[in-house]
Design a protein around this nucleic acid. Structure first.
Length: 705
RNA sequence: GAGCCCGUAGCUCAGUGGUAGAGCGUUCGGUUCACAUCCGAAAGGUCGAUGGUUCAAAUCCAUCCGGGCUCACCA
């Protein structure tokens, strides 16, 4: 079996079907669920690490005699993909609006195909032994059915509702997003002290705000209970300095006495806390800023101006009428959309929500069944579940699962939701309205949050909602891996949804790897341009070396600082290790004396010692892989091969070569096998040249210790 | 503001109760040897600080300092 390069070996394995799981097998199963990378472009070093880890465990388990399923796939990544794709269109002078939904979607799918090609290339180059016959894309028809089932069941169980609530709105992406899709940036801003005149008196309440442009939508003033200075105004009205509107003054314990003047202007349309307070005091909700991030008619002369620019103008308007008493420099954190970094605008929008309390409670009860690595991550999830908010699942995008709700164009023009309204939950267009019999049914315009489908990943990949043999055999997954940054968005959701829909935890072992960072400790990102391209490293040092280098970083929950140079040094080190292995092979097999009278039994002290060391190394490596401490397994093997075997034993064996030959061959074969999960290509190449071997190293057995 | 993690050799990091470790770097020596080099040796660390538990602490506990992450409605 002559193969010229790594790609040939990969094709050989693939063609032989070694990557395929076999549900009808009598072997015990072991299942690993690949986290689907986002459909946005190249795979980066973090993906390379994730996939190397999964592949090592998969290959290890196969050699231990398990029927292994390593299931691959890709996530359609709604908001993220849509942003990326729209940028591509922009460069071509096109846009969503110009193309229209249908044409835009057609082109989006074509763009998807391009990205797919690049993903698959990287996976095959890396030697990932996934069962490609079971590959899943989160937006493919099969998954659309599963997601529909998810939605339908939630609806039937009364866990879904639609309503106008205050949401985090990204004006750039043009959609509502969730708290956990935001991040905070420290900004220096200004804190404005604004005077609100008391109606009928020549007295004022002073209020601090960082957003004077929202004054136009102020509808009340809250002070903390028993405010020494302002409590006499309770029940009176203040006057909105910009809008002239009357503002009722009342107490509310949610106002922080320690902050500012102890009085808070209430703008329910543009602030979460104000929304809550406003609701409890029956205040009107007004909008000074619209969904495009521009000022509304409410802002008078500022109408149409971007909110960010309106801030200064609103301040000037206030100053002109003498309503500003003081301005301070102020440093605070500003919420931005984690995808596009635009400042998020809280506003009222009609969205769909999932009631998450019952789901979270069930998750909490079952969390102990999952082995988290590192352990302390469990606590973070516990805390999150305990304080969970309802999940806003609708997004005003095109790239995603369309909300499977149809409204009657005749009797439900306002798109009301309810069982006795002209509304149907259906995958396909319903023929007629259940209420009036009309045939003009219109589908909800919005799509579902990406994580609404990704959360179903552990079961949708195995055929949910059908009760498949795969679901029975491979679920719960033995192993799942993820970057920690999506633990709430994704991991927490998978746990809730799996428990809800199939009544089981989704995975038994949950491995959170660390984040690779640059030497300053910053994340690798496109915008910083500090990324390291795994393909470049592979080209220079070979896949096996890159994989080995990455296992050094595969410690649960531990971030690793690195750079192109440091990665290269590590890779070079393992490239040299590969060379060492080749030379060991050359010495033991190619250059062996002709006149060998081999014997298996040796009473020689050196032979006994190396075999003992081999045995304890195998034990250690096996234990460490079982514990998912790949870095320790790799270290143990590395030290044994290079130092115990090559430097010491082989050197000594040169004086008694013939006698040592059986031991040399035995140790060589075993280290090649034990290295296979980590260095799949080189080990197969050498394995094939051993005097006795199976058709592939993938079919050989992990040494028992 | 709360929680979690980290602080070990010049650099990047393992090690988490029993005589301080690896890779790279540095210095010295060897190498027509299985070695796209390799081998041998050396230098280099009060394991962030202080206190405690213990026969024994880098490791456990407390406090503090420094760095990071996560969460939170601070106007």
């Amino acid at each position: 079996m002559e193969k010229n390069n790594e790609q040939d070996w990969y094709n050989f394995w693939d063609k032989q079907g070694y990557f395929k799981a076999d549900p009808s097998s009598s072997k015990k199963s072991y299942s690993l669920l690949m986290p689907p990378p986002n459909l946005t472009g190249e795979l980066h070093l973090g993906h390379a690490m994730q996939h190397s880890i999964m592949d090592a465990i998969a290959r290890f388990k196969r050699m231990q005699g398990f029927d292994v399923l390593l299931l691959p796939g890709v996530d359609h990544a709604g908001i993220l993909f849509e942003g990326t794709f729209n940028k591509v269109l922009e460069k071509q002078g096109l846009s969503k609006r110009k193309l229209g939904r249908e044409e835009w979607l057609k082109r989006a799918w074509e763009f998807r195909d391009e990205i797919y090609k690049s993903f698959h290339k990287t996976w095959t180059v890396m030697g990932i032994s996934a069962d490609w016959s079971r590959e899943v894309f989160t937006f493919e028809p099969k998954i659309q059915k599963a997601v529909f089932e998810e939605f339908k069941r939630f609806w039937d169980e009364d866990l879904l509702y639609k309503g106008a609530y205050i949401v985090q709105w990204c004006p750039k992406c043009g959609t509502a997003i969730e708290d956990i899709e935001m991040e905070y940036q420290e900004r220096i801003g200004k804190l404005y002290y604004v005077k609100y005149k008391i109606e009928g008196l020549d007295e004022y309440i002073e209020i601090t705000t960082v957003r004077p442009e929202t004054v136009y939508a102020d509808v009340g003033i809250a002070i903390y209970p028993n405010h020494p200075k302002y409590r006499e105004y309770i029940g009176k009205n203040a006057v909105n300095p910009l809008a002239g509107r009357k503002l009722p003054i009342f107490e509310d314990k949610r106002v922080d006495p320690k902050f500012g003047t102890g009085a808070l202007k209430i703008t329910p349309g543009h602030d979460l806390l104000d929304y809550e307070i406003g609701k409890d005091h029956n205040l009107e909700i007004l909008h000074a800023i619209d969904k495009m991030g521009k000022m509304t008619e409410l802002a008078g002369d500022l109408v149409g101006i971007k909110a960010v620019e309106a801030r200064k103008l609103a301040f000037e308007n206030l100053e002109k009428i003498g309503a500003i008493s003081k301005v301070e420099e102020y440093s605070h954190s500003v919420p931005v959309c984690e995808r596009c970094k635009t400042v998020v605008e809280p506003l009222i929008s009609t969205e769909w929500f999932v009631k998450t309390k019952p789901l979270a409670e069930k998750a909490l009860k079952n969390l102990d069944k999952i082995n988290f690595l590192p352990k302390n991550y469990k606590k973070m999830l516990v805390d999150w579940y305990k304080e969970i908010h309802d999940w806003s699942i609708s997004r005003s995008l095109w790239w995603g699962h369309r909300i499977p709700v149809w409204y009657c164009g005749k009797c439900n023009k306002t798109h009301n939701v309810g069982k006795d309204e002209g509304m149907v939950v259906s995958f396909d267009r319903p023929e007629k309205c259940p209420k009036c019999g009309g045939s003009n049914l219109i589908q909800d315009e919005q799509v579902l949050d990406t994580w609404f489908s990704s959360g179903l990943w552990p079961i949708a990949t195995l055929g949910f909602p059908k009760k498949t043999t795969e679901l029975k055999r491979y679920f719960p997954w033995n192993f799942e891996i993820s970057a920690p940054e999506i633990k709430y968005l994704w991991i927490a959701r998978m746990i809730m949804l799996s428990l809800h829909f199939v009544n089981e935890i989704p995975f038994k072992n949950m491995f959170f790897h660390g984040m690779l960072r640059d030497l300053q400790g910053q994340k690798f990102s496109k915008s910083l341009g500090n990324g390291i391209d795994p393909n470049e490293l592979i080209k220079q040092w070979g896949v096996d070396s890159v994989r080995m280098a990455l296992y050094g970083y595969s410690i649960p929950g531990r971030d690793g600082k690195t750079s192109k140079q440091l990665m290269s040094e590590r890779c070079k080190n393992y490239r040299n290790f590969g060379t060492k292995l080749k030379n060991i092979y050359r010495f033991v097999i190619e250059l062996k004396p002709d006149s060998l009278s081999s014997s298996d039994q040796s009473e020689n002290k050196d032979d006994k010692e190396i075999l003992e060391k081999l045995n304890s190394m195998v034990q250690e490596a096996t234990k460490n892989i079982d514990n998912f401490s790949l870095h320790l397994a790799v270290e143990a093997i590395y030290n044994f091969v290079w130092h115990d075997f090559a430097d010491i034993y082989i050197e000594k064996s040169k004086n008694r070569r013939e006698e040592a030959q059986p031991t040399l061959e035995k140790v060589l074969k075993e280290i090649i096998i034990i290295l296979h999960p980590f260095m799949p290509f080189l080990t197969e190449e050498l394995y094939q040249k051993l005097p006795e071997h199976k058709k592939s190293i993938m079919l050989d057995n992990w040494p028992k210790s």
